[in-house]
Each structure stands twice: as structure tokens, then as C-alpha cells.
Nucleic acid binder design. Structure first.
Lengths: 247, 247
DNA sequence: GCAAAAGTGTTTACGCTACACCCATGA
DNA sequence: TCATGGGTGTAGCGTAAACACTTTTGC
């Protein structure tokens, strides 16, 4: 429905598309940026410097500008927030839109939420003013500002589900990775342990999930047998899926 | 991100939350309302009476009002469009948000799209003015107005995927239904034939998917053995999933 | 040698597919 | 009695869980 006259608010027409006839909506994006660092699932958060929720942590985000789509706004905000210039290979996925009246006490804000996955992320540099920005472990978060707890939980749930039937996990890994690292992504996001031999077979049996790097092996933290290196393959979906263990 | 000053457009603050500082965005909902009627997948469409796209078919939808969420707007629009007063048991699911600039030539419109599933739907009565509204078969649709072809395709894809791992199919069925009708939903949405004995076993083996109605059997269109009646059970997800055949 | 991590093999159980077959009804 | 759709049984294959085992490195 696109500003269709015969279905305008209350059934009356917005006389000749009067753009200012109604209380305006602000349209923003919110970003749940996830990464696996130091063996834990971490989230990029910013500290609010002003009311409401001053001093509380929140998801990064910002206004959608008149000339850009929500996806473009999300990429721009993410680049500003992380300082990353090369966002190729970044996985950015629209989650859903949060539109409840009153979710921002100041005005009507409709927010399009995104989930983004990074590997080897840089330390963020705050937004340019009082607000700090930093990575924080997903477990052990105080309550966030606004409805961001819920957005973050939705993002976690979505990412966990997509690991089952897509090749998304490679988005958490550097360009070349070991199967142990890939398995660690699954275990960290799902919070469960997986059987290594079976995991290995599943991954290698799925054509296009990963492909071996012809070069040499790499040491894994010094200890243990050197592991073979793999790259992400061309596939997007997993057939059959790699299901979470049912506890 | 909720109208946070330090991340306002261009990095400058929207001086004291001036709600009218920017070109306003219109926020609407678009509804992809699906049903299985006469053995075919059908969609609820409205005919546009005004420019742009006058005379073209479009998805129903409308503005989000200042006091309501997108979900509430979607339910209201659906009730107005179909004349249904009892929308309990209705499956209404947010699809995604379409925000590309230029998707409506008149002004900036950000639209939250929903997929809705109905069984035994009534004939719609147009929006109250020139526009007609009617059910049309999913296959055999001319190009729709705006980007509604894409929204509808996204809805179809999402619903097809959710049939695999959720109990969504019962939303296409009346309160009491036969397993043959349930199977027909799968076959219609997926466009494939399924093996009846195997389908039956899968469904009955999933606890909470369906539960038998203690009462008597019903004739199926007069011909054949009377089929047992089932109701939707309490389960929401399917473990293990009922996967589409891979052709 | 020992610990740690990578990689291989094997056994077993279950789920799914593909059929063949029987049952109850209307015309 | 035949066509139609509901319902049951079963043989065989493939996948996957569980666990034992070998290999290669650092200390």
C-alpha cells in the first residue's frame, strides 16, 4: 500500500498527498552486530550520552536518510561505528521492523532492525562524541535501552536458526579458517557442544559449503596437530540441514 | 537507534527533537493474504482507482495510524478489506520492510509487509470506493502495482519454507479438517505431489501437530471412504521437519 | 612421554522412500 | 462393480549419533 488515497487514515484522503498532513514518523535502523571473539559471542554496543536511557547501553543505529534505503542506512551506520571501510563479504540481514507506539518516549519511531555478522572485528571508535562503543559478551549484559533487549534476542534466535539450514557460519570466520574454528562458531552461537567427527563429515559432505585451500596447514594456537585450511564455498543453503541437538 | 541525537542525519542533531526537521516518511503496511480455494493458491488483490498504476491490481494495505503498531494496522486493514470480524486464529506474520527510495513515485513510503493466511475466506467487498477487491489465483497474475510482485513472491517463498518446519499449514484449513485437506495445502503451496501414506505418518508422528476429533467421520465430497477429522494441536514447530521433495 | 587438537573408522539405530495392499463409500 | 479417496504394512536404503582409535604437534 503506497499512500493510496482511498485508504488513507480514517478512510479520508490525504488531500493531494500532503506530506505534512500527519504526525510524522521517524524511520531508523537498529543493528545487532554479532561476532565470535575470545571464544564467546559478542555484541557491538554504544553507550547513550543523553536522555532517555542516558548511561545505558544500546544497539548502534541511526536515521534513514531521505535518499537511501534501510539497507544502505544500516551499512553506513555500521561503517561509521566500526571504522571498517571494507564491508565486502559482510552479512547484513533484515530482521524485522519494530513499530509499537511508545517504544521511544520522544516521538513516533519505526525502526528496521538488522543482524550483522563480522569476523575479526576492529575495536570500535565511539560515534564521535560522548558515547562510547565497545564489544560486550552476549551473556552478561545488563538491560539495554529501549526495546533493544528484545531486538537482540530476536537476532540471536534468527542467527541460531539460520546456522541450521544455511552456510551463514562462514560469515563469522576469517577468509581462511579451520573446521575446528567453524565448529566453534556453531557451538558458541548455539551454546552446545558438537561431536567433532560427525560435524566434520556433515560439513564436508555438503557440496559448496567449504572448499579446501591448496596451501599448507596451520598450527592451531601452537598445540595439537596442524589443521587444514578451508574457504567458504559457493553454496548458500545446506541440504540437508545441520540441526541443533535436541536436549 | 531511537532518534538518538548524536547520530542524526549527517551527524548533526535534530535540534531538540524537531519532529518536522526532515522530509517526512510515510509508513504503510502491505498485505499478502493467501488462501487455498478451489484447489488453487489464491491471493487477495485490490484494483487501483487512481494514478499511479490506475487500473492495476495491488496488494491491500494502508497507512499506519499514529496510535497503532504495524501489526495492528495490518489487522485493521485486513478486517476492513475482507469484512471479517472474527480474526482469531488468523496467522499474520511480518515478512520484511521495503524501503527503497522511489518505490512510490509520489513520496517516500516505507512499507512493512505482512503475510496472512486464511481458510474459507469470504468474498471481499471493495474498499468503499471505486476500487474492487477479489481473490485471484496465484499463478496467472499480471504484473502488480509498485513492487508488489516482489512482495508477493517473498511471501510465497516464506510460507513455503515455513510449511517445512512449522505447523503453519493448519492456518490454511478450517477448524476441523481431514489429513487429505492438510496434504492438499502442502501440495498446493509447494506445487508438488506428496506420497499420501508417508505424509500421513509424518504428520501423526509429530506430537501436537494435529489431534483427532472424537466425533464421527465425514464424507469427502461424497466419493471415497469417509475421512477422520482432525484439529490443529498445540505444537508450533515440526521436529523433525517435513522437507520439500528435491526435484 | 604426555596433553591437546586433528582426522579416520565402525557400529547401530532410526527415518524416510517407494511401493503393494486393504477398506469404505457413491454412482 | 468400478472408481475414488482413506488408511495400513513393509522391505530397503541412507543418514546420523555415539564412541573407539590413530596422527601430529608443543611442552
Amino acid at each position: 500500500m503506497e499512500a493510496e488515497e482511498n485508504r488513507a487514515p480514517g478512510g479520508t484522503a490525504p488531500e493531494g498527498y500532503d506530506k505534512y498532513a500527519f504526525e510524522p514518523f521517524a524511520v531508523t535502523v537498529d543493528l545487532a552486530v554479532l561476532t565470535v571473539r575470545a571464544g564467546a559471542l559478542q555484541v557491538l554496543l554504544v553507550e547513550r550520552g543523553t536522555q532517555p536511557y542516558a548511561g545505558r547501553w544500546a544497539l548502534p543505529g541511526g536515521f534513514v536518510l531521505p535518499h537511501e534505503s534501510a539497507e544502505e542506512a544500516a551499512r553506513r551506520e555500521l561503517a561509521e561505528e566500526t571504522g571498517l571501510s571494507d564491508l565486502t563479504g559482510l552479512h547484513l540481514e533484515q530482521l524485522r521492523t519494530y513499530s509499537e507506539p511508545g517504544r521511544d518516549p520522544r516521538m513516533r519511531v519505526v525502526s528496521v532492525a538488522f543482524a550483522a555478522l563480522l569476523s575479526d572485528p576492529p575495536e570500535p571508535h565511539g560515534g564521535g562524541d560522548a558515547a562510547r562503543a565497545m564489544w560486550q559478551p552476549y551473556d552478561d549484559l545488563g538491560p539495554l535501552a529501549f526495546d533493544h533487549d528484545r531486538i537482540l534476542a530476536d537476532a540471536h534466535e534468527r542467527v541460531g536458526a539460520k546456522l541450521e539450514y544455511s552456510c551463514l557460519a562462514t560469515s563469522f570466520c576469517p577468509p581462511e579458517f579451520t573446521l575446528g574454528e567453524l565448529q566453534h562458531v556453531y557451538e558458541t552461537v548455539w551454546g552446545t557442544a558438537l561431536d567433532r567427527p560427525n560435524f566434520r563429515r556433515k560439513v564436508l559432505a555438503t557440496p559448496g559449503f567449504v572448499e579446501q585451500v591448496p596451501g599448507a596447514a596451520r598450527l592451531t594456537g601452537g598445540r595439537g596437530k596442524p589443521a587444514a585450511l578451508y574457504r567458504a564455498g559457493g553454496a548458500k543453503v545446506l541440504h540437508p540441514p545441520l540441526l541443533r541437538p535436541t536436549p
